[in-house]
Design a protein around this nucleic acid. Structure first.
Length: 593
RNA sequence: UCGGGAUUGGUGUAAUUGGCAGCACGACUGAUUCUGGUUCAGUUAGUCCAGGUUCGAGUCCUGGAUCCCGAGCCA
C-alpha cells in the first residue's frame, strides 16, 4: 500500500477544488501545488511536527507539486543554528526532500525567512507610504493597555496619525539601530475596534539588537510572524499555507497584509491560501516546546533525544522507523477537531513495520540458569534458526546450544496456575529451535529463592522434531547458551507520564500541581544483567541482518519486543533500547487472575 | 464578558452535500502457529442535548450544552 495513497481529508479536498477551478494555474494542473514546512529554529521537532511535515510534504507529493523546508527565523533572541541542524536532520530522517535538496550537503535548498528581510523591509516602507503603517513611540505597556480587552475596543495610539514622512524617517532610524530596544515599533494601521485582536494595529517590526544566526548584525529590527509569514509564502509561490488552528484568527491579517501591499501595484504579489488543521495531541505525553525544554533543563530526561521524549530525535533513538512514523501520521488523519490520540496507535504502527522487517534474535533479560543433566558437558551444538518467519529471504543463522543455558526467570513458576504454559517442576516445554525440556528440580538458595533448574531434554526431539509418542507441549521458551551468551544492558521504556493528559490539572490535585508531578516514576527500567545470543555481538552483515538506511540496528528479541542498539552503546558495554514490546496476551490473562 | 472554531462507537476518521451511518485501531470470541507474536474468521459499540422543517436529517432551521483558540515588541 502506497503511503501517500487513499488519504482523503478536507485539506486534500480543498486543494482538489482549487485545482479544478484553476485558482493557481490552468484548471486541472495538479503540479502547481506548493506547500512548505516552516519551523522556527528554537527547539527540537516533535511528533506533532511530524504530522505537519507528513501533511505538507505528503500533499505536495500526491499532487506532483513541491514542498519547501523553510526556517521561520525572525526572532534571533530565541533561535540557534544548533536547532537548524537538528531540524534538517529530522526532516531528512523522516524521508522527505525539498526542491534542490542534495544527498551530499544536507543544507542544500533549505530556505530561510531571513533571506527575505530586505523584501519585507521594502514592503513595509511601501505600507508606510500608503498610510497603512506607522511608527509608534509608545512603551510596550502603553501599547498593551491601548489594545483593549474582549468586548472592549482598543484606543488609537497618539502616534497613529503622525505624518507619513515622519514615520518613514523614524522607521529608517530604527533600521539603522539609532533607537534602543523597546522604544519604538512599526505597526500596521488597521482597526483598533476590531473584535479580532490581531487587527488592532498589530506590530510589524520590533527593535532587537542581537546578532542573528545568519544575518549577523545586518538588521536591528526584526519582523513579527504575521508580517513575515505571508510574505515568505508569497515569495516562494506557496499555494496552500497549512498551519494549525490557533492561527485561524490570524488569517484576516495574513490576507490584509498581502492585499494592502498589492493595492495599486501593477504586478501584484502572489496571494497564498492559509488553511488550518488541528495539531496532534498524544496521550501520556506533552508536546509544547516549553514543557519539553523544561524536562530537558531540569534533567527529568537525559536530553532532547531521550528515548522517552516525543521528539523525532527521541523516537529515532528509541528505534522507531521513519516508515512507522509516517504510517502513524497517515492513519490518524487530519481534521479540525482537537483530538487526543492514544499512543498505542504509534506503537502499533511501529510493530506493524518492524514485524515485517526486523530479524529475530533470542535475548534473556532476567536470566535463570538451567542445567540439562542428560546433555554432555563441554559439548556445543549449533542449531539453525530462521531470521524472520515473515520473510524467508532473511535467511537463517546458527545458535550455539550447551548443557548450561539461561532462560527467562518469568518463564518458570514453582506453583504455576493452569493457564501458565511455561516451565514448572515436572513440566515439559519446548526450547525454541532445539528440543523438548522437562524440569525435574528447582534448586533454591538459603533465602528460598530459585537459583537453578535441573532439567532433562528429550533427544528424540532434537532439532525441533515432534516427539514420536505424539505428546504435545503448549509453551515455547527462548534461551541463550550460558557459555556463549553475551552480557548487555537493556533499557525498557514506558510512557513518560502516568496520566493521559498531563496538560490539565487532575481533579482534586493540589494548587501547586504541575505536569512534572505526573511524570511516571517507572518510565525507565534498566536491566544490567541481560544475556544475548552471540549473533548480536557480531557484525550485523555476517548474520544476514538488513542494512538500515539510518544505520540503527534493530531486531526483535523473541517473545519480548523490538529493540535497537542505543546511540551510546559500545562493543564493550552494549546497550539495547526497547522500541516497543510485543503484544502480550499472557500478561492480560495473568492480570485477570 | 466579546470574537473565532469545534462536537459521529472506547479512540481516530468518513458519509456522493437531504437518501441503508462506512473504514481503521482497540476490546472480545474462535481457528492457525516451534514467538501467549504474526496471520485468518467473527462479535462488539456511535451521530452532544431539546425542539422544528421534510416521505426522509449526522447533514437544513431555532435554541441550548460542552470543549479549544484569542488581549506577546513569541511563532
Amino acid at each position: 500500500m502506497s503511503e501517500s495513497a487513499n488519504q482523503d481529508h478536507f485539506l486534500k479536498r480543498t486543494i482538489e477544488e482549487d485545482i479544478a477551478g484553476g485558482r493557481w494555474g490552468a484548471p486541472g494542473d495538479r503540479s502547481v501545488v506548493r506547500t512548505r514546512f516552516p519551523p522556527e529554529p528554537n527547539g527540537f521537532l516533535h511528533i506533532g511536527h511530524a504530522k505537519s511535515i507528513c501533511l505538507n510534504f505528503g500533499l505536495a507529493e500526491q499532487f506532483g507539486g513541491s514542498c519547501n523546508l523553510r526556517f521561520d527565523d525572525t526572532n534571533p533572541v530565541k533561535e540557534d543554528k544548533l536547532f537548524v541542524e537538528s531540524i534538517v536532520r529530522d526532516v531528512r530522517w523522516l524521508g522527505f526532500r525539498w526542491p534542490g535538496a542534495s544527498e551530499s550537503d544536507p543544507m542544500e535548498g533549505v530556505r530561510f525567512a531571513s533571506d527575505y528581510f530586505q523584501l519585507m523591509h521594502d514592503c513595509a516602507v511601501d505600507l508606510i507610504k500608503k498610510g497603512l503603517a506607522y511608527v509608534d513611540d509608545q512603551t510596550p505597556e502603553q501599547i498593551r493597555e491601548g489594545r483593549g480587552a474582549p468586548g472592549v475596543p482598543g484606543t488609537n495610539s497618539p502616534f497613529r496619525d503622525r505624518p507619513i514622512e515622519e514615520s518613514l524617517e523614524l522607521f529608517e532610524k530604527m533600521v539603522a539601530g539609532e533607537f534602543p530596544e523597546g522604544s519604538r515599533v512599526l505597526r500596521a494601521k488597521i482597526d483598533m475596534a476590531s473584535p479580532n485582536f490581531n487587527m488592532r494595529d498589530p506590530v510589524m517590526y520590533r527593535i532587537v539588537k542581537m546578532a542573528h544566526h545568519r544575518t549577523g548584525d545586518a538588521w536591528r529590527v526584526y519582523p513579527m510572524y504575521d508580517w513575515a509569514h505571508g510574505l515568505e509564502d508569497s515569495v516562494e509561490g506557496i499555494t496552500h499555507s497549512i498551519c494549525t488552528l490557533e492561527f485561524e484568527d490570524h488569517r484576516p491579517l495574513y490576507d490584509w497584509f498581502i492585499k494592502s501591499i498589492n493595492e495599486g501595484r501593477s504586478e501584484p504579489l502572489h496571494h497564498p491560501q492559509q488553511i488550518e488543521f488541528a495539531r496532534l495531541n498524544l496521550g501520556y505525553t506533552v508536546m509544547s516546546k516549553r514543557k519539553l525544554k523544561q524536562l530537558v533543563d531540569e534533567k527529568r530526561v537525559e536530553g532532547w533525544d531521550d528515548p522517552r521524549m516525543p521528539t523525532i530525535a527521541g523516537y529515532r533513538r528509541r528505534g522507531y522507523t521513519p516508515e512507522s512514523v509516517r504510517s502513524f501520521c497517515r492513519d490518524i488523519g487530519v481534521s479540525r477537531f482537537n483530538s487526543l490520540i492514544d499512543p498505542g496507535r504509534l506503537e502499533n504502527a511501529c510493530r506493524e513495520h518492524l514485524n515485517a522487517v526486523a530479524p529475530r534474535r533470542m535475548a534473556v533479560l532476567k536470566p535463570l540458569k538451567v542445567v540439562i543433566e542428560n546433555f554432555p558437558e563441554g559439548e556445543t551444538r549449533h542449531i539453525e534458526a530462521v531470521n524472520n518467519p515473515e520473510d524467508a529471504s532473511a535467511g537463517v543463522r546458527k545458535v550455539p546450544f550447551t548443557r548450561e543455558l539461561y532462560i527467562e526467570r518469568d518463564d518458570f513458576m514453582e506453583d504455576p496456575p493452569k493457564k501458565f504454559f511455561r516451565l514448572g517442576p515436572g513440566r515439559e516445554v519446548r526450547l525454541r529451535y532445539a528440543c523438548l525440556l522437562t524440569c525435574i528440580e528447582a534448586v533454591k538458595d538459603a533465602s528460598g529463592e530459585v537459583v537453578e533448574l535441573r532439567c532433562t531434554y528429550d533427544p528424540e526431539t532434537w532439532g525441533g522434531k515432534n516427539p514420536p509418542d505424539g505428546r504435545k507441549v503448549k509453551g515455547t521458551l527462548h534461551w541463550v547458551s550460558a557459555v556463549h551468551g553475551i552480557k548487555a544492558e537493556v533499557r525498557n521504556y514506558d510512557r513518560l507520564f502516568s496520566i493521559e493528559d498531563p496538560n490539565h490539572t487532575p481533579k482534586g490535585a493540589p494548587e501547586t500541581w504541575s505536569f512534572l508531578d505526573a511524570i511516571n516514576p517507572d518510565s525507565l527500567e534498566v536491566i544490567s544483567g541481560a544475556v544475548l545470543e552471540p549473533a548480536l555481538a557480531q557484525d550485523p552483515a555476517s548474520s544476514n541482518e538488513p542494512a538500515w538506511p539510518d544505520g540503527i540496528r534493530r531486531v526483535q528479541f523473541e517473545r519480548h519486543g523490538y529493540y535497537c542498539i542505543d546511540s551510546a552503546s559500545t562493543p564493550e558495554r552494549p546497550v539495547w533500547n526497547r522500541t516497543v514490546s510485543l503484544k502480550d496476551s499472557w500478561a492480560k490473562i495473568a492480570q485477570k487472575g
